[in-house]
Amino acid sequence: MLISDRMLLKVIVLGDSGVGKTSLMNQYVYKKFNKQYKATIGADFVTKELHIDDKLVTLQIWDTAGQERFHSLGVAFYRGADCCVLVYDVNIQKTFETLQTWHEEFLK
C-alpha cells in the first residue's frame, strides 16, 4: 500500500473520574480490558495508526484524569487537540449531567 499523506490527530478523552475513560481507550487501542481500577494521575496518551483511503492517520489519544484536583492541568493537555470524546457512566446520572461542563472547558 502506497501512503501518500500522513496526518496526526490529537484526541482528548474527557469525563468524570471512574467512568471508564482508560478502559475505553485500552479496549480501542489494545483490544484489552483490565478489571482492576487504577485512577489516572494527570494524563497519559497512546497512539494508534489507521489507514484511511491513501492516508496514514496517527491518532494520539490522551486519557485525562477526571478528578477535580487535576482540572487545572486540562488546558495544557487540550492545547492542539482536534477533538474530544466525552465519556459518562450510564449508571450514574451525574456523570452525564457534567458532560456539558467538560465540553465547555474543552472549547475554551
Score class of each variant (00 low, 15 high):
residue 18 G to N: 02
residue 47 T to G: 10
residue 13 V to F: 00
residue 10 K to C: 14
residue 50 L to P: 03
residue 105 E to F: 04
residue 58 T to D: 07
residue 74 G to E: 14
residue 68 E to I: 07
residue 103 H to N: 15
residue 11 V to H: 10
residue 35 K to A: 15
residue 14 L to Q: 06
residue 90 V to H: 13
residue 16 D to I: 10
residue 105 E to T: 15
residue 105 E to H: 10
residue 13 V to G: 00
residue 80 G to H: 04
residue 60 Q to W: 07
residue 59 L to P: 07
residue 26 N to S: 04
residue 74 G to M: 12
residue 9 L to V: 14
residue 11 V to I: 15
residue 79 R to C: 12
residue 104 E to L: 06
residue 8 L to H: 11
residue 107 L to Q: 14
residue 106 F to T: 03
residue 29 V to T: 13
residue 4 S to T: 13
residue 90 V to L: 15
residue 58 T to K: 15
residue 4 S to P: 10
residue 31 K to M: 11
residue 8 L to D: 12
residue 49 E to W: 08
residue 21 K to Q: 00
residue 33 F to Q: 10
residue 21 K to M: 01
residue 59 L to D: 07
residue 67 Q to S: 06
residue 5 D to T: 10
residue 19 V to A: 00
residue 2 L to Q: 11
residue 72 S to Q: 11
residue 73 L to I: 07
residue 67 Q to D: 03
residue 100 Q to S: 15
residue 102 W to S: 00
residue 77 F to K: 03
residue 23 S to D: 05
residue 72 S to P: 07
residue 43 A to H: 02
residue 9 L to S: 13
residue 15 G to A: 07
residue 52 I to T: 02
residue 75 V to L: 10
residue 100 Q to V: 10
residue 43 A to I: 01
residue 15 G to E: 09
residue 76 A to C: 14
residue 81 A to V: 06
residue 102 W to L: 01
residue 90 V to A: 15
residue 67 Q to M: 06
residue 66 G to W: 03
residue 17 S to M: 02
residue 55 K to M: 13
residue 11 V to Q: 05
residue 30 Y to V: 02
residue 81 A to N: 02
residue 107 L to G: 01
residue 108 K to M: 08
residue 100 Q to T: 13
residue 33 F to L: 11
residue 38 K to V: 13
residue 7 M to I: 15
residue 48 K to Q: 15
residue 62 W to I: 08
residue 95 T to W: 03
residue 102 W to G: 04
residue 38 K to D: 08
residue 45 F to I: 05
residue 87 V to A: 08
residue 50 L to R: 14
residue 98 T to F: 03
residue 25 M to P: 00
residue 36 Q to A: 12
residue 107 L to A: 09
residue 89 D to Q: 07
residue 81 A to M: 10
residue 61 I to L: 11
residue 43 A to G: 05
residue 48 K to G: 04
residue 92 I to V: 14
residue 64 T to W: 00
residue 40 T to K: 02
residue 101 T to K: 09
residue 24 L to V: 00
residue 99 L to D: 04
residue 65 A to L: 01
residue 102 W to D: 01
residue 34 N to Y: 07
residue 38 K to S: 08
residue 70 F to R: 12
residue 14 L to F: 04
